[in-house]
Amino acid sequence: MLLEDKKSKKQKNVRVRDIVIGGPEKVIISGPCSVEDYETMRKITSGLKKCGVQILRGGAFKPRTSPYDFQGLKHEGVKILHEVGKEFDMPIVTEIMDARDLESCAEHLDMIQVGSRNMYNYTLLKELGNYNIPILLKRGMSATLTEWLNAAEYIISSGNPDVVLCERGIRTFETYTRNTLDLNLVAAIKENYNIPIIVDPSHGTGRRELVGKMSLAGIVAGGDGVIIESHINPDKAISDAKQTISIENLSEIISNIKKIENLF
């Protein structure tokens, strides 16, 4: 196993351009679920930059349960994200679903996300090991700790050591929330393993009114940061509107995280 026990080595940091994930400062990643168009993305990014977001996220390739739902702008979305990130001097992260898209997209990205559905896509994971770019690895919706860590090992053992885990909630019998945010494993990973981890309270709850409290809970559990879906007009977001928060709400969450980040 390349993931070393924390007792034998201090916490590993992953650098996304000038942003360090795993250091003393908690990292805020935010943006819309889907890249909708250039002007909307630009307006969102302007607000995010002002309230202190360090890394810009946005979905270009969208894995949807129904084939009839919006599937994303794909390569055009990556291009928009890249251009806006460059304009506002913000690193960008987006999900790549297919190994065949890596070559054309990787040069435009600062971090590549592996989504929940692709955590078991070992062909993709091994291919990501060939790229010198940080990877954000989301937990599969029913994945155990061992399965999740082994997915990270596929990337690391293939040559790319810069992996950040993302707890995004697991599927349980509870139906009030979209998923159940498993903060037990956030604490366990910080206690036992030499790898950074962030928390996704947007997918973890599926309810915007819970995102603020669960963001703080994720930091208290040991998370190195959060990834939150935000929009200038959350109710009209093309994807995942119910879990998307406003820039104003995000600013308040960031302020609260700043108050407690040095305590944990």
Rank of each mutant, 00 (worst) to 15 (best):
28 I>V: 14
45 T>K: 11
31 G>M: 09
66 S>V: 12
41 M>S: 13
50 K>L: 15
62 K>V: 08
76 E>F: 13
63 P>H: 00
41 M>I: 04
38 Y>T: 03
32 P>N: 12
78 V>Y: 12
63 P>F: 00
72 G>D: 01
65 T>F: 01
40 T>Q: 13
78 V>F: 15
61 F>I: 01
53 V>F: 07
62 K>F: 01
34 S>Q: 04
66 S>N: 05
61 F>M: 08
26 K>Y: 11
56 L>Y: 07
22 G>N: 03
65 T>N: 04
58 G>F: 14
27 V>A: 14
28 I>A: 10
59 G>K: 08
63 P>Q: 02
44 I>C: 09
70 F>S: 02
30 S>Y: 05
34 S>E: 03
47 G>S: 04
45 T>W: 01
49 K>S: 11
27 V>N: 12
49 K>Q: 09
54 Q>W: 12
67 P>K: 00
35 V>I: 15
25 E>H: 15
30 S>G: 09
40 T>V: 13
30 S>F: 05
55 I>P: 09
46 S>P: 04
31 G>S: 12
56 L>I: 02
22 G>I: 07
25 E>F: 13
60 A>Q: 11
55 I>W: 12
35 V>M: 10
46 S>V: 11
45 T>D: 02
67 P>I: 00
63 P>C: 00
37 D>L: 07
43 K>F: 09
78 V>T: 06
24 P>N: 14
71 Q>V: 03
30 S>C: 06
61 F>W: 15
67 P>S: 00
70 F>Q: 06
52 G>N: 02
43 K>S: 11
47 G>I: 12
32 P>C: 11
69 D>N: 04
25 E>K: 15
35 V>Y: 07
26 K>E: 01
65 T>G: 00
53 V>P: 02
73 L>V: 05
66 S>T: 08
48 L>N: 08
48 L>V: 15
75 H>Q: 15
30 S>A: 15
37 D>E: 14
19 I>H: 01
76 E>T: 15
70 F>V: 04
59 G>P: 02
36 E>W: 03
75 H>C: 14
21 I>W: 02
78 V>A: 06
33 C>N: 12
36 E>G: 11
